[in-house]
C-alpha cells in the first residue's frame, strides 16, 4: 500500500519556477500552455496490512502539519493498494 501526496503552491503565492517553466515551454514551441505550477510529489510506502482509513487520517494530519505548509501550499492525498 502506498500513499501519494501531491503538493502544489497556492494560487495566490508567486510561483517563479512555474512561470519560468511555462516560458521555456513556450520557447520550445509547445503551444496552448495557460499556466504551469511546480510542486512536489511525495510517495510513502506503508507496511502491509495497514488500515487504510487510519492511514488516511494520520497522513492527512502529517500532510497538514509537516509535509505541506498550509500558508503557501495545497496538497492532495491518495492511498492506493
Amino acid at each position: 500500500m502506498k500513499a501519494k501526496i501531491v503538493i502544489t503552491p497556492k494560487k495566490a503565492v508567486l510561483d517563479p519556477q512555474g512561470k519560468t517553466v511555462q516560458t521555456a515551454l513556450e520557447h520550445m514551441g509547445y503551444a496552448g500552455v495557460a499556466a504551469v505550477h511546480v510542486g512536489k510529489y511525495i510517495e510513502i510506502d506503508l507496511q502491509p496490512g495497514t488500515d487504510k482509513a487510519a492511514a488516511t487520517t494520520a497522513l492527512n494530519e502529517a500532510a497538514h502539519k509537516f509535509l505541506s505548509n498550509p500558508v503557501i501550499e495545497d496538497y492532495r492525498l491518495e492511498i492506493v493498494d
Binding site: V13, L14, P16, Q17, T20, N69, V71
Partner: peptide, 17 residues
C-alpha cells in the same frame, strides 16, 4: 520561526529564482 508558527506567514523562493 514561521514554520513553527511563532511568526505568521512564510518565506518562499525569491521571485527571480
Amino acid at each position: 520561526l514561521c514554520e513553527a508558527g511563532l511568526l505568521p506567514g512564510a518565506l518562499v523562493r525569491n521571485r527571480d529564482l
